[in-house]
């Protein structure tokens, strides 16, 4: 132990080794083994069988395509909403502000199934707007717009939650400076705000995208799970599993798991950037305090 502090309270090496072994066993059994088995099961038939399972089934191809079109739209809506909501909450004080902040968190604590049901009660055939939508011949439930709405709901807190703390930590001084120098609102946003929040924004977008690609419960309820029409990749995983086509199900699951790993690597890299920017900010603040 080279720590300058007297390591009186440090547990003995034996206890430490036992603790590390226990932690490794927990993470290994709960997380690593399941993750490894996705890839092992997906590739038991070899890479070519995996590729065939993914590409030779029209419904699976459609599910991949659908996920790739639903998730980005939900992420874009969330990005616009996240920036607007964080700007509102971090830069202005108004009555009901803290209630609004807790409303941002509601989608995290509401079961996705409950959220999906609520959308069905509004837009479904028996729903509030059902007759109107039927008259207009618009389909929301059991169709693409419903999938987007459900996905946007479950990912709603992810971007705004990342931006609020960063914007509060940075403060409004530089934006106020820009305004007093005659910058327009859009110029303030693109030249001052966006550069300072870009990593936090990217962090939120990466997390929202991962959640959007993987959402199951809410999408399950609003989709009507019609193969080749409204089945997204996670729904396809379930359907193939129900049809006792486990290898094909595992192949689709392995793509989702690979995406999760890419997400984590990106998240890790972005977090290192965020940490170094927070350190820079702290240093700058300390210097400012030194020269008032």
């Amino acid at each position: 132990m080279t720590s300058p502090r007297a390591p009186v309270t440090h547990a003995s090496p034996v206890v430490n080794a036992a603790l590390v072994a226990a932690a490794a066993a927990i993470v290994g059994l709960v997380i690593v083994v399941p993750l490894a088995s996705v890839f092992a099961e997906a590739f038991t038939g070899g890479a070519s069988a995996w590729w065939v399972a993914l590409t030779h089934d029209a419904d699976t191809r459609h599910a991949i395509w659908l996920s790739l079109t639903v998730a980005p739209v939900a992420v874009v809506i969330n990005t616009v909403f996240g920036i607007a909501a964080a700007w509102l909450v971090a830069r202005f004080r108004f009555p009901g502000r803290s209630l609004l902040i807790s409303l941002f968190d509601v989608p995290f604590s509401v079961s996705p199934v409950v959220a999906g049901l609520a959308l069905v009660l509004i837009f479904g055939r028996q729903g509030l707007l059902g007759p109107t939508l039927a008259w207009l011949d618009w389909k929301i439930i059991f169709a693409w717009p419903g999938l987007v709405l459900a996905t946007t709901f479950v990912t709603l807190p992810l971007v705004v939650r990342e931006l609020i703390p960063v914007m509060e930590a940075i403060g409004p001084d530089e934006e106020l400076a820009a305004v007093s120098l005659g910058a327009s609102g859009w110029q303030v946003f693109t030249r001052v705000t966006l550069p300072t929040i870009r990593w936090a924004l990217l962090h939120g977008i990466v997390l929202a995208n991962a959640r959007a690609m993987g959402e199951f419960g809410a999408v399950y309820v609003v989709s009507g799970h019609i193969a080749g029409v409204t089945d997204t990749m996670p729904l396809r995983v379930e359907k193939l599993f129900q049809e006792y086509r486990t290898p094909a199900s595992m192949a689709v699951a392995s793509v989702l798991a690979g995406l999760a790993l890419v997400t984590l690597v990106a998240k890790f890299a972005i977090e290192r950037r965020l940490e170094s920017e927070a350190r820079d900010l702290a240093t700058a603040r300390a210097q400012d305090a030194g020269h008032p």
Partner: peptide, 24 residues
């Protein structure tokens, strides 16, 4: 590495988790 692995369940779709756990 252990620290990074803790975040896997946040990124892994729950359907994948359910499928894998049931086959394990």
């Amino acid at each position: 590495l252990l620290d990074a692995l803790v975040d896997v369940p946040l990124a892994l779709p729950t359907a994948v988790a359910g499928l894998v756990y049931s086959t394990l």
